[in-house]
Design a protein around this nucleic acid. Structure first.
Lengths: 252, 252
DNA sequence: CGCTTGATTGATGCAAGTCAATTATGGTGG
DNA sequence: CCACCATAATTGACTTGCATCAATCAAGCG
């Protein structure tokens, strides 16, 4: 198999994928690159607020996030919403809907999002042609579950203050991991307090008051979508332990 | 490859695996059966209360539950415990610990448990030799995440009464799926109210009082480890929607 | 028979929810 | 340029769902 970049009308060739540069992501062989390239059908752009995967619907593609932020969520019939997790660049979304009959959650864009699309049928081809990539996909699924496990511990056992500290530190750390911190500290955190409340399982008002406590204590600054950790030690302590970091990770 | 059952000192041959009978589980080809058989190193028996996979430790095996109940949980340094999910026959546990460096949660037996053990290195062999089984493993990982997602919605958004109704209905349904209902109705539910409280993220006392409400309303009966759904309609309504059932599922 | 584990119940307190009003802030059309 | 509107953040007053504390009861069991 050739390692020549495939030239085709698509926006980006996988060999030139900007995500490949990231230190946190594992290297691909030329073979693997070619397989992913052949599986990719194109790119998709989403506007903030667009739900591109919806609970109850069958989805024909799954996606890797090339750029932007999104979030996975579930809703109850009466409108209560629980945000399950956030999806950042290099994260895989919609895999569940490709394996099962239909999606059991929805995914919505928070910023302009660029997605790399793979048709669900070709997942099977990938499993037949590349055990290593199949392994990576399982790894990503297991990693996602691990994050949800941690979130579950947070909602079930931590107090409002601990929860808030934990989730903020978690988001900050993940943004760092994929190089979303410009320069030193502040990250662009494209969520409202309502999103945070729906993540924490708290009311909007109480979320606001808890944030204020963290702010007054000098641990964080969050203004105009810019988020800054001022005292990581203290924030980690308030969260009840630091965040589990991932060394090297695969992505498709 | 032969479809003759492999005779070797092990307790059960995979071809004769009692779980194969279950309607809910997908059929295996002779090839697949042989591969699983070769991967299996033996069986393990656990006593109630034994934690056979532990948070922070590296585990050399992952397991399929052949019989019995177990639960996955995480703990905070100060002892607070969150039960993430329960593991019933045909469920896979410890996969995460085989993919990642170490376990991020623990698993403890609730009853006598028989496990089918697979060494972590052979997972790679399986991915190389059987795309279909690799696919099944990913399916199981995605399914587990789906269950945790639902649980997260429950803890984040549902009230104590809704939570309790939901989790009980969930457990009952899953027990049904793998044929744990003897005769018609009552299931052996091998958990204490403390387990349930740690699952729901509620205090023991409040869990007890909420159970009583469901009992008084004539929806459930739970006495001496025997659990019965008396009014499924009402219980589902109290839970805020019925449980997502799975038609056909794979297992390893 | 006393010990331990689990279930049950009442009294009291507090963390978080709800209600309601006010203050930015930015967009937009007259 | 400004009046108008919608979205988001903030704050105070009041309410409540769930936690905590503290007994009591029931059942197995060595």
């Amino acid at each position: 198999m050739s390692n020549t970049p495939v030239a085709d009308g698509r926006a980006t060739s996988c060999a030139a994928c900007p995500l490949r540069q990231k230190r946190a992501l594992r290297e691909f062989s030329a073979d693997e690159l070619a397989i992913v390239q052949r599986m990719k059908t194109g790119e998709l752009r989403m506007k903030p607020g667009a739900s591109f995967l919806r609970q109850g619907e069958r989805n024909e593609h799954f996606y890797t996030i090339l750029s932007g932020w999104a979030f996975r969520y579930k809703m109850l019939p009466d409108g209560r919403r629980q945000i399950l997790n956030y999806a950042l660049p290099a994260d895989l979304v919609g895999l569940q809907g490709s394996l099962m009959v239909e999606m059991e959650h929805s995914v919505e864009a928070l910023t302009d999002v660029t997605l790399c699309a793979f048709p669900r049928e070709r997942l099977w081809t990938l499993y037949s042609n590349s055990p290593s990539l199949a392994f990576d996909i399982t790894w990503l699924a297991a990693r996602e579950e691990q994050l949800v496990d941690e979130h579950l511990l947070t909602l079930g056992q931590r107090t409002a203050l601990e929860r808030t500290a934990y989730v903020l530190l978690h988001l900050y750390t993940r943004a760092e991991e994929v190089g979303l911190t410009r320069g030193s500290d502040p990250v662009h955190l494209p969520i409202t307090q309502q999103h945070l409340a729906d993540t924490l399982g708290l009311s909007l008002v109480h979320t606001n008051k808890t944030l204020k406590r963290l702010h007054v204590a000098g641990m964080i600054r969050w203004k105009d979508r810019l988020f800054e950790v001022l005292d990581r030690q203290a924030l980690a302590a308030a969260a009840g332990g630091d965040i589990t970091r991932i060394r090297q990770r695969p992505f498709i």
